[in-house]
Simulated assay, not measured.
Amino acid sequence: MSLRLKVCGMARPDNLRTVAALAPDFLGFIFYSKSRRFAGTNLQPADTAALPAGIQKVGVFVNEELEVMQARVQEFNLDLVQLHGAETPKTCAALQAVGIPVSKAFAVGERFDFSVLTPYVGHVTYFLFDTAGAQPGGNGTPFNWQLLEQYHLPVPYFLAGGLALEHAAELRNLCLPGLFALDLNSRFETEPGVKDAGQLQQLFHEIRTPGVATSIPS
Rank of each mutant, 00 (worst) to 15 (best):
D14L: 12
C8A: 05
T214M: 09
K90D: 15
G59E: 11
R72D: 01
L5S: 00
N185L: 05
P136N: 03
V108R: 03
A132G: 05
P101W: 07
Q70T: 08
A169L: 10
P52S: 12
A50P: 07
A86C: 02
V124A: 10
Q96W: 00
A53R: 13
G178A: 03
V108Y: 04
G28L: 03
G161E: 08
R72L: 11
Q146R: 10
F188M: 08
M10L: 15
T190K: 06
F188H: 09
V124R: 13
Q44I: 09
V73Q: 08
G161M: 04
W145A: 06
V116E: 11
A181T: 07
G198Y: 02
M10C: 08
A134I: 11
L153H: 09
E189M: 00
P119Q: 10
P192V: 02
L16A: 10
T88V: 03
P45L: 08
H123K: 15
I207G: 11
F180T: 01
I55S: 10
F158A: 02
S2N: 13
D14W: 11
K195A: 02
G40V: 09
G85A: 00
F106R: 05
T118F: 09
G28I: 04
A197R: 08
L83G: 03
A20E: 14
S215E: 14
P89G: 07
E110A: 14
P89K: 04
R36P: 01
E67Q: 12
L163S: 09
N144Y: 04
L159Y: 09
N63C: 06
L43C: 11
V62P: 04
P119K: 11
A20L: 12
V62I: 07
D113C: 06
C175E: 13
Y157N: 02
A97D: 13
A168Q: 13
Y151Q: 07
V7I: 14
C92I: 06
A11E: 03
T125F: 08
L3N: 00
T118I: 12
L200Y: 04
T125D: 15
I55N: 10
I207C: 12
N185D: 06
E75T: 12
L165A: 11
T209V: 07
F180V: 03
V212I: 12
T41F: 10
P119E: 10
Q74K: 15
G178M: 03
A134V: 13
H152L: 00
